[in-house]
Amino acid sequence: MKKKILLFPFLVFVLVLSIFFYLLLIERNPSKIPSNLINKSFPVFEAESLITNKKVVSSDIFENKIILINFFATWCKPCRDEHDFIMQLSNKKNLKIFGINYKDNSKKTQVWLEDLGNPYSDVLIDKNGKIAIDWGVYGIPETFIVNSKGIIKYRHTGPITKKIYKKIYALIEEAN
């Protein structure tokens, strides 16, 4: 009887330990918060365009194409790091990339885009961070993929690395 009682906590201990090991081994970052907007339609918002200086309504930019939304700012170093990958993605047909310039200086952004290249079809200004809150953004850079039906399919927090670039590339191919 006593042996049986001791066996039970031991088994529980092994179970808990194996769960911890499993969580350690799988690829996951606990500080990353999953987006609540996946499989939902994109938020409706209005913003001024940095390029045309005109007002843009979000429904105008979604025209049956796959869309990549990238929140960026010139003051954000990781945004600069991922810029090359976004440039590469801009060569892709059937994909439109929109930049959302988060709490930034418009003049600096224009210079930045001239220096590094402009991968965006349009850049929308988010002066006070309200558009970012609408998209559930909590730290830039953040990148979203919206399918041709206007449904958000993917969100990545942090800079696009080679690995993430491949993932995004595959997702766009899949959506096509």
Partner: peptide, 23 residues
């Protein structure tokens, strides 16, 4: 506060927390 995660936006000095308080 989504940036500091263990504070409320009432206690946090993060810019996002301020934006949310204003909102």
């Amino acid at each position: 506060c989504m940036v500091c995660q263990n504070q409320s936006i009432d206690e946090s000095n993060a810019p996002l927390a301020k934006d949310m308080r204003i909102l």
